[in-house]
């Protein structure tokens, strides 16, 4: 009589999840640096945007609040273009190439594949932001009063752009289509960022938006507003904007083209 073969103990030479993420991430970096169009989008464009903002906004950075606004605008421009748009485009391209399906036919878990694709994009932009921050500092921008809050806001917003990019890629059939499918989130982030400047009685609601949460945290980081419950609410909102798109995307993610 035939019996089912049991699953043996785990293969001893199985690479760790971290090792697999690193391998995929290095592969993705290699591709980014080989493709001039992608390289231009991922590296040069965000820096150009930052220089543009700084050139036209440097003289306005006279108070902690205006400095926080300028930092926020720069961060949004760089992160949305460098992380959000690139993550959406990369996921859509790899899906179109059926490379995501290939990776999933191997031993890596879904989370490892996603992380491997997103980590290099986020790391690259984090590096760009560090360079931009040094440049802003040398140009006379005031350092934040609460650097850890700013750091948390920056990293949180980068993670947000990555997970929302992953989510947006579900509805993005091709790399070209990413130019269209990413527009709504660009609009939402910028609109909600500016919304926080108005005393319209909806301040609590505005802090729940991605741009509003970011702006609130940056304001607190530069000491323009106190660190209080509303800041904690903004941090929680930012976290929710990271986690919820990830959870939805992980359930509805498409591994192959339609």
């Amino acid at each position: 009589m035939s019996t089912l073969a049991p699953i043996p103990a785990a293969t001893p030479h199985s690479p760790s999840a971290a090792s697999r993420v690193t391998s995929i991430a290095l592969m993705e970096l290699r591709i980014i640096f080989r493709n001039k169009t992608v390289l231009l989008g991922a590296v040069l464009m965000p820096i150009a945007m930052a220089v543009y903002f700084f050139y036209f906004g440097a003289e306005q950075m006279v108070s902690p609040a205006s400095t926080a606004v300028m930092a926020g605008l720069t961060l949004m421009a760089v992160a949305l273009l460098g992380v959000y748009l690139t993550a959406t485009t990369t996921m859509a391209t790899r899906r179109e190439e059926l490379f995501l399906k290939r990776l999933r036919s191997g031993e890596s878990s879904d989370a490892v594949i996603w992380l491997g694709m997103l980590v290099p994009i986020v790391t690259l932009v984090a590096g760009q932001l560090a360079v931009i921050a040094v440049g802003f500092g040398m140009a006379g921008m005031d350092a934040p009063a609460r650097p850890l809050v700013v750091l948390g806001a920056v990293l949180g917003f980068l993670a947000l752009c990555a997970t929302v990019g992953m989510f947006t890629s579900i509805y993005t059939p091709s790399a070209a289509a990413a130019q269209i499918t990413t527009l709504p989130f660009f609009a939402v982030v910028f609109a909600s960022f500016f919304w926080t400047a108005f005393d319209d009685g909806f301040e609590t609601l505005s802090r729940l938006t991605p741009g509003g949460a970011l702006q609130n945290l940056l304001m607190a980081g530069w000491g323009a507003i106190p660190l209080d419950v509303s800041t904690a609410g903004a941090a929680a909102a930012l976290l929710a904007w990271i986690v919820v798109p990830y959870l939805v995307a992980s359930r509805r993610f498409r591994w192959e083209k339609r």
């Binding site: 293969t11 690479p15 080989r34 493709n35 490379f99 036919s105 191997g106």
Partner: peptide
């Protein structure tokens, strides 16, 4: 798979190396 792709900008050898690094070979 009947239809699965590659990262087109990688070389054949790089593709193999990546795959082996992801596998419990």
């Amino acid at each position: 798979l009947q239809e699965a792709g590659f990262a087109d900008d990688l070389t054949v050898e790089e593709t193999c190396r990546l795959w082996l690094r992801l596998s419990a070979a």
